[in-house]
Simulated assay, not measured.
Amino acid sequence: MTTTDEKPVLVFDSGIGGLTVLREARVLMPERRFVYVADDAAFPYGDWAEEPLRARIVSLFGVLLQRHQPEAVIIACNTAFTLAGAALRAAYPDMRFIGTVPAIKPAAERTRSGLITVLATPGTVKRAYTQDLIASFASRCAVHLVGSQGLARLAEAYIRGEAVDEAAVLAEVSPCFQEQDGAKTDIVVLACTHYPFLANLFRKLAPWPVDWLDPAEAIARQARRLVPWTEEATHPDAPDVAIFTSGRSDFSTRRLMQGFGLTMTPEIFEGQGMASVTKADIAG
């Protein structure tokens, strides 16, 4: 039987964006082993209709929790958590889920101009969860929502060392910069964990300096508060592993995972009790 001290922390994302959160979580939880799961078979989540994607995520976690028995799960994906967080907690009430939501509250606390932009996926932008955050924490600010169709893909390519067209990146981020009554946007919330990989490029292309707000550290701090401290490292000789739901194992992906100290391990998901939901169910 697996004891509490032996249980890993599972970090979940649609692709490699959650590595930004994993990096911070390791700093705060050095005694823990980590399992990183990228649902790249369904990437990008922004292309999916809500109900098929929610069903896929909840079903996928039925497999992941049974196989890995984690101490806690970090959902390092705004789209996944704002869409399926409540359903996951209802389906698996005994599991600790640490979510990722747009960092609208800290942005509202820090802004001086009162003009904030939330740069996210189209799904996160249109979700009621995001509107509720704005109403609760930023009602005195002018919050501009920008739903990027292609930025997550560009970030995936960039972090793998592929050439990225700066003009394409600029086209995605240009709407973030607003001027109103002599004031300018001074904070851009990076509401997708992929986006911080492009932060240096964002700074280079920006028409004026802004604070690009990366939520990774705050997510890791919340996880540390909820995950029990252990006196000794869990499975000190066992590596942290990365699992890609597509079974992908190309050279650039393996090299990237090695750079983050992760060992790729194959797992089969289709036909393992998951709902029969695939990208064929995408609806616009």
Rank of each mutant, 00 (worst) to 15 (best):
T234P: 06
D240Q: 06
A25P: 05
I74Y: 11
L151C: 07
F12A: 07
P93V: 02
F97P: 06
G182C: 12
R225T: 12
A128D: 14
K279I: 10
A155I: 10
V35F: 11
D250H: 12
P228C: 03
L65A: 05
T124N: 04
L213E: 00
S246C: 04
S249Y: 09
I282P: 00
M257F: 10
L83E: 12
R54A: 11
D165G: 02
G46A: 03
D40P: 09
V169D: 00
P106I: 10
V11H: 07
Q131C: 01
V58A: 09
Y45T: 03
D211G: 00
G247Y: 03
F269H: 01
A55D: 12
A103T: 07
T111P: 02
M29V: 09
L64C: 00
D165T: 05
G85M: 07
T193A: 01
A87Y: 04
S252T: 14
Q222K: 14
E172K: 07
R33E: 08
D40H: 13
L213P: 00
T265M: 13
H68D: 12
R225H: 12
E51R: 14
E232Y: 14
P196K: 08
G99E: 03
A103Q: 07
I187R: 10
A157V: 02
A206K: 10
E71R: 06
T193F: 04
V227K: 02
F61H: 15
G85R: 05
V189M: 10
G99C: 04
M29E: 11
Y129R: 04
G15V: 11
P228I: 03
T230R: 15
M264T: 01
L205G: 02
R67A: 11
S276N: 13
S113T: 13
I159M: 14
V227H: 00
L28A: 11
K204Y: 05
R23P: 01
A218N: 03
Y195F: 15
R56D: 02
A152M: 12
V11Q: 03
Y92G: 03
E217F: 13
G247M: 09
T111N: 01
E51L: 13
G182K: 12
D186Y: 11
M29D: 06
W212E: 02
G161R: 13
A25I: 08
V169M: 00
I187N: 08
V27Q: 15
A142L: 11
L53M: 13
E166S: 12
A183Y: 14
S246A: 13
V58R: 02
R67V: 10
V37I: 13
T245W: 06
L60E: 04
R248E: 15
I74K: 10
L226G: 03
L205C: 07
G161W: 14
A25T: 08
V277D: 03
C77T: 04
E109I: 09
